[in-house]
Each structure stands twice: as C-alpha cells, then as structure tokens.
Simulated assay, not measured.
Amino acid sequence: MKTVERASLPGNDFLIIAHRGASAYAPDHTFPSYELAVAMGADYIEIDLHMTRDRQLVAFHDRSIILEGEEHAIANLTLKELQNFLPGRIFNEQLPVMASKSFESLFVPTLEDIFLHFKDQVNYYIEIKSPTATPGIEKELIHQLESYQLLNRSDRFPKVIIQSYNADSLKKVFELAPSIPLVKLYSQDTTSISKGEIRDLEKYASGVGVNHSLVTIDFVNRLHDKGLAIHPFVVNDADDIQALLNMGADGIFTDKPDIAAKVKRSHLREPTKP
C-alpha cells in the first residue's frame, strides 16, 4: 500500500494566528474580531468549530452556553436556539473598556457565514472541538472546505490548517483530505510527549500546539528534527513573543495580533548575528 505523505507547514516564516480573531479588542469569533485581526496583520484567523444538533458548523469556543439561566451543550442546541446567545453583550460586560454598542447585536456565525464573508481572502486555522459528541463533524468540515474551493491550492501559506486535541479526529481528516496540514494540540507538559507519540505524529501531523510557557529550545529542536512545526498558545506579551521567535517557534496564537506583528517586524529588521 502506498504511503500518503503528510502535508507541510511553512518553515521559513513566523505565523501570526489570531486567537478567536483579535479577541482582546472585540468579541471572539465575530466578524469585527476577525476583520480587525486581518487589518492588524494576522496570517490566520482561528476558528473553534462545533456542530449543532441540526448539524450546522458554528464558530464558538466553549462546549456549552448559558441561556435563560440554564447551561446547554452546543451539540444539544439547534442553530436557531444558539443564535439567541449574544456574544457582544457578554464581551461588553466583561471588558467595558473595549465595549461598543455595535457589538450588542452580534450573533454566533456559522462556518458558512464566515466563508461567504471572507471567501479565499484570508487563511483559516480551524480547531475541531468536541468531535466525540458530534460524529461526522470532520466529513462536514471537509465538504464545506471543498465547496468553497479552499483545498489543494498553491498559495504562499496553506489556505487551511486544522488542529485538535483529539488525535482520532485529526486522523479522520487525514484520511479524507491528506493535503491539509494538521496540528495536534497538547495541554500537558511538553516533556511528557513520548518518542512513540512523536513517531505517531510523523504519520499524519504537520505540527503541534502547546502552551507557550512550556516551550524550550530543546523541545523546538526535537520537533523540528522530526519535521514538525510548533505553534505555541496563547501569547500576548511582546517579550514572550520575542523569546519564542528566538527559540525558533514557527508561529503563535495571540489575542493581540497587532503586538505580534510589531514584534515580528522588529525581529525581521534586526541584523543577523555572526
């Protein structure tokens, strides 16, 4: 049987991935947040992806929401029910210094809303959330990506990158569309990723995502030796971003793409040390 090669990620650039958009300044996973991220110089907008009870793909981070005082899993709500949730009002309450009246009517967008709005003018970094609760989410995602002609392109950066904490979900995506770069997320200490697990990653993954506080030069080199990129999360401090650049990280997730873009520009202007 012919071995299918895993996709590759850019190895000569530092990707700025807007975590839920420019979510320090606007409600996460809304058009203002995504648009601001692009304007600030983000290379990718990150989309946390859930599937509703009526099998609609939506951009939302948490597994559940509070509606009328009761908690509901996204997987148990219809799209119509979910759109009773107004993320802008929550943002305005939690971050009044950034509040805007225009945010109050914002809704939870579907993935198709996002594709219709941005088309192929941005790059998408999509996290598959709760795949065990929503069987078939991978197949529906690939269907939509194909429908909007976002796969098998020859752009400077891959138009789409997919990530997940769930290895089985990523392997399903690999079977369906091996041209998509896949990133395995980890929540634990990076030292606990065994040699055997890295060998498994080499079969399907293009990179890993870990908490930025756990990244070391040794870990970066260990991954790079196996052809795996590293995209730490979530990094908003300029000094932390600079430190990750110096360690050789391939990109970062940030709520503040403007700060990341400024650090990146400054880094690129620095003369190469002999």
Rank of each mutant, 00 (worst) to 15 (best):
A7H: 04
L185P: 08
V160Y: 04
D43R: 03
A249P: 08
N76L: 10
I193N: 08
T190G: 09
K273W: 04
I142N: 08
L145P: 08
N76V: 04
K80M: 08
Q188T: 14
F157T: 00
K2G: 01
M247G: 02
L151Y: 07
N76T: 14
P135G: 05
T191I: 15
D43A: 02
D28A: 08
L151S: 12
I142R: 12
K256D: 08
D250V: 00
D54A: 00
E93Q: 15
L67M: 13
I252H: 02
K203C: 00
S154V: 14
E270R: 15
I74Y: 00
A99Y: 10
Y25W: 11
K262T: 13
R89M: 12
R53I: 01
V4R: 11
D13I: 04
K2H: 08
D255R: 04
L77F: 04
K195W: 06
E46N: 07
D225E: 15
S266T: 11
F107D: 01
F107I: 14
G88Q: 02
L150E: 13
D13M: 05
R20V: 00
N166C: 09
E104Y: 02
L268E: 14
T272Y: 06
L67A: 09
K101Q: 13
S169V: 02
K203L: 11
K2L: 08
F107P: 00
D28F: 03
A261K: 15
A39I: 04
P271T: 07
S33P: 03
L228S: 12
Y25L: 08
L201Y: 13
